[in-house]
Design a protein around this nucleic acid. Structure first.
Lengths: 240, 240
DNA sequence: GAGTGGTCTAGACCACCCC
DNA sequence: GGGTGGTCTAGACCACTCC
């Protein structure tokens, strides 16, 4: 069951084991899984290792613990990839849609005061400003304007902008992304945006402003994204 | 520094200690905090306890670890209560606004097929359906329709509906809330909604559908909430 | 080679739940 | 009183980074 010589850590093997038992209904919803002491006997590992595995599964929503009673399988009908930052390209791939980006503009500007605050660069620092439309299956989904410090990415080839920026950050620049802050609001399309997105004027749009941060806590880019309300929605999971 | 006789667990005290050091710039951004072995000496506790505290602070975004190098303070300009499910009442309290709820309707209906799927009850089970307007500082913010299985809450006093439902669940019914799934989209106000929210027809609204779950994974309620786009926005944090 | 975080063991005592 | 998870100790070996 557990291979102590595997290069996969034991606690990961235990996680996989428990997930498999849940999947096969061996450990069923709302029933108690074997206690930590029982698992020690069954799997021949220390309590700390068991607790490490169970703790991770609790955080991921597979199990819940009741002190003094036991550890139970959680009833979870749903998805599990919530609250993950994903690139739009990845989202569309998962939906089986082919994404295409049309670059509308590409400039290097000097940071205004307000931009220098939002993007955490110094005022007048050179900033790359790009606007593009993102089109899936011939329908325009979003009009996007993003800003990134020129210092961080140097010279960007324009062809990069037709693909996934996230891919470029991670695979080409080898940056370690960590998280993003997003602000979501509902607005009405103005003249220009409605033309770009091929909607009526005043059509409802989701405006999502996003700040993307790296592992060391430094900001990477700032994006304003106007999504067509009839084409896009956001799913999130909130923890009490 | 560390009180081993305190009823507050040692690892919590260590977390508080490290947070305080960060706040006072004693541990500063991007610099290494004392190594785990050094902290063992400094605080006179075991390595496991140190790691427990540091692990929690990493999860909360205060620190980041680099294997072979050390543990560093993360540069975080921002808020920390992201991705928490909060009641609307709590949100408004934090903004210093006084929230008032006006109940528009209160019915007991039999679950339709689609509702029984959304709310995970059986078809034709009795369901409480309430609609209300939520008003802060005399401005209508949201029009809300919520559904809850009658079996779960029994007879609800109508006065409960003028206050915070979440409070009622937690403090009166002693239910343990765990998480919610939310779907956010942008729509245009129809005739009825625009009248209730005192907006123009076709005004942009945030429609947020929310399913609230308890610790055992069972669903508690389903809510459709229409927020005025000019009055409300959503902030979230996504992890890569 | 010295220092770091990552993993793991073998114990211990506690508060809480249930019978 | 016996079982559960929650906390804590005192060790150990590993892979990795940096010099």
């Amino acid at each position: 069951m557990i291979d102590k010589n595997s290069k996969l850590p034991i606690y990961c093997q235990i996680e996989d084991y428990i997930k498999a038992q849940i999947k096969s209904k061996e450990f069923d919803v709302d029933t108690m899984i074997p206690s930590e002491r029982e698992l020690i006997e069954m799997l021949n590992v220390s309590r700390h290792t068991i607790r490490q595995a169970i703790g991770n599964l609790v955080n991921e929503g597979y199990l819940y613990r009741l002190a003094g009673k036991g550890t139970f399988v959680k009833d979870r009908h749903l998805i599990y990839k919530e609250n993950k930052y994903t690139s739009f390209t990845e989202d569309m791939e998962q939906l089986g849609k082919k994404l295409f980006s049309k670059v509308l503009s590409f400039d290097i500007v000097n940071a205004s005061e307000s931009l220098s605050n939002t993007l955490s660069v110094n005022e007048n620092d050179p900033v790359i400003r790009v606007s593009r439309v993102r089109i899936a299956d011939n329908v325009p989904l979003s009009y996007e304007i993003f800003y990134i410090s020129k210092e961080l990415v140097g010279d960007m080839d324009k062809s990069v902008l037709e693909g996934s920026l996230i891919d470029y950050y991670e695979k080409v620049l080898k940056l370690k992304l960590d998280h993003s802050f997003e602000t979501i609001e509902s607005i009405a399309a103005d003249q220009k945006t409605s033309e770009i997105l091929e909607t009526n004027i005043n059509a409802p749009l989701l405006l999502i402003r996003s700040k993307l941060y790296m592992e060391n806590g430094k900001q990477l880019h700032y994006v304003k994204n106007y999504f067509r309300g009839d084409q896009y929605r956001v799913n999130i999971r909130l923890k009490r």
